[in-house]
Each structure stands twice: as C-alpha cells, then as structure tokens.
Amino acid sequence: MAVYKHSYRRYEGDLTARWQRLLVLPRYAYRGVFQSRFFLIFFVICLIVPLGAALLIYLRHNIGALDLMNIPDDAILPINATFFEWVIQIQGSFAFLLTVFVGPGLVSPDLVNNALPLYLSRPFSRTEYVVGKMSVLMILQSCVTWVPLCVLFLLQASLAEGNWISANTRILVAILLGSAVWILLLSLLAMAISAWVRWKAIAGALMFGVFLVGAGFGETVSALFNTKWGSLFNISSMMQVIWEWLFFGGASETGETVNRLAAGQVPVWSACLALVVIGLCCLFLLSRRIRAYEVVR
C-alpha cells in the first residue's frame, strides 16, 4: 500500500485487561535481568539457605535418618519461632542484595533516555508505571523471602505431630507481614534512589550507603546523646525490632516480657512510625520525578 494511503486507524485487536497492563513491565525486565549469568548464580545462591532449612526440618522429624548419620537428636535446632526468625533475617539480607543489583536499573534508564513519555502516552498511569516497576523487585524478593518460608512452614506443619499449625499461626502471620514490610520498604527505597540518581553504580552504592551510613549515624547519635533513639536512623535495626515483635510479641525468645527501651531497643511503634516516614519520603521523591516531561529552567 502506498505510504499516503496509510492513515490513522484505531487499534482493533484485543485490549489487555487494565490490571494486567502493569505486568508487561516485569515481563520485559526479567528478560534483561536473567540474561546476566552473575545474577542467575546469585539468585540460585539465595535459595540455598531455605533448602538447608528444609533439610533441617526433615532431619528433625526423621529419627531414622539422624541415627543413620550418627547425629544426636538434640544437635538439630528446634523448629520454632526463633528458627523462622533466623531464616527470615538471612533471606531478608539476600532480598536486599537482590534489590541492590536490580533496583538501580529500573527507572533511571527511562529518565535518562527520556522514555517516560513513551509509557505515559499509552493507557498507562503514573501509578501503574510505579507499581509495575516495583513489581519487578517485589516478585523477585518474594521468591527469596515469604514464598520459601511459607513452604518451610507447611513442611514443618505436615511433619509435626498434633495441631502444630493452629499453635503456631503467629509464625505464618509474622512471615507474611514481616516479609511484606521489608519488601515494600526495599522496593520504595530502590525506586526513589533509581529515580533520582542517574548512574546505576552510584545508585547501588547509595542503597548500601542508606543502610550503612544510617546505621553509623544512628550509633553516633546514640553515643553522643547517651540515648537509644539513634537506632531510628538504622533501618536494619528497626526491621529487626518489627520482626522480633511479629514473631514473639512483647515477650523475649524465652517467653519473658521485655522492656525494649531498657534492653537497648526502640519501641515497636516508633520503629513502625520511622519506616512509614521513610516510605512516605520515598513516595514523595518518586512523585516528583516520575513525570512525562521535565521542564528545566
């Protein structure tokens, strides 16, 4: 057909359902992410700890296997809230490293190459763009946090005697809620940093910086003012407080009631509040940056 005969015609094919549109972003992002052999190896390494934990759970309930390997019964860790808290902390660290590798490259290339109008000129809102990009991280983080932990929980429930699930529902809730808070926080931070720092390497370093410098700064505050409130600058420490509370409530691992301030920790409400403030700051930074056009005067 001659070029002049080409005129505007409405697209007549099937439209993607509105809720599915944001999944287009992770689909294409994963193609790029998993092309890296280094990342693939790292992703596999992230799953080694849950695999080991599953083996421990299996051994704990299989006296025959323990006897075969000459391992005394009490040498295996008891499978309780402490066990799951350890695993979630280790997996949380892996989720952080995954975020450092993937997060910085999510938004910055679109901003550097002025590609944002290409997304936003389609029936695709700013919110959908942000949620779509965040889902790239959230799906990956889920694969190393709550998904394997839930599998471990179910494995333990299936092997344990009696009504283990009903007695330990708190652990399942802690796994889901604790992972959700950590995943959301990491994703928001990574997105905000990626939107404001154009170079991926510096954005990655900044992710480390926010956590490590924040921790160091918090320690300095605590030392200078002889207070425990400096921990509010330490994101990992706040997350630790929240995880502990989710797994054990107001009690310690041995079941005693804990006065957190006396034990050198900030109260749970303050840790939650600080994380909400950080999240809101990230959202504000994102809303300032994710725009179709940027007018520079």
Binding site: W199, A201, I202, A205, F208, G209, L212, V213, G216, F217, E219, T220
Partner: peptide, 19 residues
C-alpha cells in the same frame, strides 16, 4: 573510626572517584 573512616570517607571516595 566508625563514622568518618569506615563510612563517610569510604562512600565519599566511591562517589567521587568512580565518577
């Protein structure tokens, strides 16, 4: 030692020299 050497100067050098 804890703040300047291990964090501030370290990350400052990361930011400046890698760029």
């Amino acid at each position: 030692r804890a703040f300047y050497l291990r964090l501030a100067v370290f990350f400052g050098c990361v930011g400046v020299f890698m760029r």
